[in-house]
Simulated assay, not measured.
Amino acid sequence: MEKVFKINTMKFSNNHKKLTAFLFLISFGMMNAQENITYEQALEKAFQQNGTLKNSKLISEYQEKLKASYLDIPQTEVSAQIGQMNGVETDNSFSISQRFSFPTVYAKRKQMLDAEWNASVINQNLTKAQLTKEVSDVFYRILTLQEKKKVIEYISKLYSSFAEKASLRLKKGETNILEESTAEIQNEQAKTQLNMLENDLNIAKLQLQLLLQSEEKFQPISDKPIMNINLQVSEEMVQQHPELQYLNQQIKINEAEAQLEKSKLLPDLLIGYTNQSMKNLNNSRFNAVQVGVGIPLFTKGQRALAKAAKAKVTISENQYQRKEI
């Protein structure tokens, strides 16, 4: 009985080892499994999952909601008084007042916020264009490296076969050690190139995985691994480039900001209403309407802000001209 038990234990141990090896091979295959993906699918996945593009969309939504903040009116002031204001009798009064900026200020602030929102939309398009370029570069680089790998693998097989034949001829005395050494060196060089190429290929695939913001590994495929590039660039195409459009929009933002800072030199407006009693005269209540203007007497600081904003316009124009060239 003891021998039978030992034999069964050995069988169980062998089966366990086979099962472990089988599961390891399956898991290794799953870890290295790569999903085939076309260029169009890669772009679609990048547009859906890339964090940078998502962030630009959120900024655009934020700027759109911020547009409604142009009508920023100060808090309404409400006050009350009670006491001997007009004589020995106790009187009371209530007043309400509201201060406004000059209407031009609100109009200029609205223009600036609209310009900032337009810039965020253009920046979203620019981010999308940059992402498209990066995905295209990496995608077709992988296809190119894969084709190079096929060529080097073929060359490596030739060198390996040549090295084997040279070694066999050396044993038969049909050649010298120099031919065998040359064949071995060429074979090793081909293997080194293949290893370097494999490393570059893995890095490129990781870059694609990062751009797609995915935990899955992808294998680019294409029936026509050739990019169609139109080398004819017109002036209109240059002006429509998202980066130039964004820089041009920055000029508009700075111009709107300069106009806004300048408009803040205009006077503020004040309107108020007061209702009070005068018991020394009679039991009636008296009303009064107040209208006022806030005259900016000390404008040095605000004028400096307006000049600084105007300087920003010049800076943005220079940036646009440099990029356009």
Rank of each mutant, 00 (worst) to 15 (best):
N36H: 14
K191V: 13
K11C: 03
A129D: 13
E179A: 08
A204Y: 01
N287W: 05
Q276A: 10
L208G: 06
E255D: 08
I185W: 07
E257H: 14
K128Q: 13
E216R: 02
N118E: 15
G272C: 08
L244N: 02
Q240I: 00
I185Q: 03
M278V: 12
K310G: 11
N248R: 01
K217N: 14
A21T: 12
L158A: 15
F162E: 11
E236S: 07
T182G: 07
L201V: 01
K191C: 06
N287A: 09
P242V: 03
P225F: 06
N36F: 12
L143F: 03
E147C: 08
A311E: 13
H241F: 07
K191N: 13
Q245E: 05
Q219W: 11
F286P: 00
I295S: 06
T314H: 10
K133R: 14
L247F: 06
M1T: 11
L66P: 00
F139W: 05
L281A: 10
F286C: 00
K224Y: 14
E215A: 11
E255G: 01
L43D: 05
L25I: 15
T52R: 09
G294T: 02
D114T: 08
L260Q: 07
I315Q: 15
K205I: 07
N118Y: 09
P74F: 11
L208S: 04
S56T: 14
I26W: 15
Q98K: 12
R109F: 06
D200N: 12
Q124N: 13
Y154Q: 15
W117C: 05
S284F: 11
N55F: 09
R141N: 15
S214L: 02
N248I: 00
N176L: 10
Y62M: 10
Y159C: 06
S284C: 00
T274L: 09
I122K: 05
L244G: 07
H241M: 05
L266C: 03
E243W: 04
E236N: 01
P220W: 03
Q111M: 06
I59F: 15
N14Y: 14
T90Q: 11
K191T: 11
I7H: 03
N8E: 06
F94Q: 03
M10E: 13
L158G: 12
R109V: 02
Q193V: 00
Q219E: 10
A288Y: 09
E235D: 06
I203G: 01
